[in-house]
Design a protein around this nucleic acid. Structure first.
Length: 500
RNA sequence: GCCGCGUUCGUCUAGGGGUCUAGGACGCCGGUCUUUCAAGCCGGUAACACGGGUUCAAAUCCCGUACGCGGCACCA
């Protein structure tokens, strides 16, 4: 049978449905982002739903992390556990009865059944089948007839077991031979043989639904029109198709996003990413000082592109440009280099006021106490030279305090025999200046060079070392103006003394 | 192993039968500018996985192979 998903009338409703079994992963953020962009693009609603049906893997704090991370990234949702909405509750653990009700409906209609097999019995069945040459044993149309379930047990026995409270699960009765086809917005028609699918558990023995059951029920009840999720769900989609059909519901449009791979090509798991030094959790990026706009922009381009040459987009621009049919089906490799480039791009697009404001917490963190007006001057000189806002503190200490060391390589290359004397002479002249600016500092230096018959560079380079302790950095004279006459003179004299 | 999905420069990608001697971006390399370092500008490096078809013509369509990834739980 062919199952066409068709366009549902009315506004677009999409959801991001993470499970609080861990902190938000960048792959999760990308999925959330595409859902968000799609919803905003079509003036629809974006919903956050927490899929916490696995009580064993529940990680405390995960839900908070997901919510905080989405907020940080600017992906606001219209309905969710913390903001409410007309289709709540938005936490699956709070909707338990709902799933049971629909599961019972499926049982009554003959599309699902009770199964009383213990884990040991299931294990035994798999072992038996494997021994008889079946490489992938399944609880399916054939094996279910030799198991303990409401299809094989007498009705009275089933009633008795249920009444006695014997643990049971509810399984989907997957048809024996049928081709299940569905249309994926990103991949086109995809088909699976029902014989490859096992009788999926819908309700676990603890009464909680499995993902498959909860997902289908909630997507329907919440009016989800487009299911946009990771490719790892593609092969369980036929089960969902069956569920929609048996429940008599319309199937939302499906779109399975390409997976994000590690830069080496494998799965971007926490473990192998840690080995490569790649953060995978959204909060790590926040802590490392990445701009949320940069991460979002980069993630948007992982699997999608606007078809134009524009690469830097604000969230608003992404919304405008986004479309699912420009999402590619192939898995993509994550690259920190490109992300850093985006970060640099966003820093350069900030005003110096904004940049300085963002730098303040970092300065505090590094024990530097200066006022924001001063930081703005630093920001103006450094904006084009930094990749992270934090570098306004770490890379720029010389703007805030005298250097205590001098870069060895720079000294070797730039500090000559006559440097100490020239630098002292320069300091003396600067001290006399009434108006200390980049222009006057430069003029005085060039005059001195001319008088001494040396190239300006012979004073410039040692001066840079004396002022900043480094052989590279922003425009020397502008830097000196920011640092001020008194400090410059002091630093020049000190360097002459220390470096000889 | 079985099933599914995928495959254009190292990476992200454009392209969807002729306009492709395959374009852009990141990275890398060189040049230029400059007091240095960045940035900018200019230039370079580098790809249609392979094999068969179809066609006057294929990166583009079809089939196969290889490789990669995903799934095969009372996890999501």
């Amino acid at each position: 049978m062919e199952t066409q998903t068709h366009r549902i009338e009315g506004p677009v409703r999409v959801r991001f449905a993470p499970s609080p079994t861990g902190f938000l992963h960048i792959g999760g953020l990308r999925t959330a982002l595409y859902n968000f962009l799609f919803a905003r693009k079509h003036d629809g609603q974006f919903i956050l739903r927490i899929e916490d049906t696995d009580q064993e893997r529940y990680v405390p704090g995960a839900e908070e992390d997901i919510i905080e991370s989405l907020r940080w990234a600017g992906l606001t949702y219209d309905e969710g556990p913390d903001v409410g909405g007309p289709c709540g509750p938005y936490r699956q653990s709070e909707r338990k009865e709902l799933y049971q009700q629909y599961a019972k409906q499926l049982v009554e209609a003959g599309y699902a059944y009770y199964a009383f097999d213990t884990p040991e019995e299931l294990e035994e069945m798999r072992r038996r089948l494997q021994q008889s040459g079946n490489p992938s044993p399944k609880y399916d149309a054939i094996t279910r007839m030799s198991m303990r379930n409401s299809l094989t047990l007498p009705a009275k026995e089933v009633e008795r077991l249920l009444a006695e409270g014997v643990p049971y699960v509810i399984r989907l009765k997957v048809p024996r031979r049928e081709t299940i086809r569905f249309y994926d917005l990103i991949r086109g028609w995809v088909s699976f043989e029902s014989s490859e699918i096992d009788d999926q558990v819908l309700i676990k023995s603890d009464g909680m639904p499995t993902y498959h059951m909860a997902n289908v029920v909630d997507d329907h009840l919440m009016g989800i029109t487009h299911v946009i999720r990771g490719e790892e769900w593609l092969s369980s989609t036929p089960k969902h198709v069956l569920l929609y059909r048996y429940l008599g519901w319309e199937i939302p449009q499906m779109a399975h996003l390409p997976l994000i791979l590690s830069p080496k090509g494998g799965k971007l798991s926490k473990r192998n990413a840690d080995e490569l030094g790649i953060p995978v959790l959204v909060h790590q990026y926040r802590e490392l000082g990445y701009e949320p706009e940069a991460l979002v922009n980069y993630l948007a381009f992982l699997g999608w592109n606007p078809g134009t040459e524009q690469e830097v987009f604000t969230l608003e621009e992404l919304i405008e440009a986004f479309s699912l049919d420009r999402v590619r089906p192939a898995a993509v490799q994550f690259s920190l280099d490109k992300l850093k480039w985006y970060n640099q791009q966003f820093i350069r697009r900030m005003s110096v006021e904004e940049l300085a404001r963002k730098a303040m917490p970092y300065l505090k963190k590094h024990g530097i106490e200066v006022d924001e007006a001063y930081v703005q001057k630093v920001a103006a000189l450094m904006q084009e030279r930094i990749t992270f806002v934090e570098e306004l503190a770490t890379f720029c200490r010389f703007f805030y305090e005298d250097p205590t060391t001098y870069e060895e390589k720079g000294v070797r290359k730039r500090w000559k025999e006559n440097s100490a004397e020239l630098v002292r002479a320069y300091a003396d002249r600067l001290e006399q200046l009434e108006e200390f600016t980049a222009e006057t500092a430069e003029r005085v230096l060039r005059e001195l060079a001319e008088e001494r018959g040396v190239k300006a560079a012979e004073i410039i380079h040692p001066t840079r070392l004396a002022i900043s302790g480094l052989s590279f950095g922003p425009s020397l004279f502008e830097m000196m103006e920011v640092i001020g006459k008194e400090a410059c003179v002091r630093r020049l004299r000190r360097a002459a003394e220390v470096l000889g």
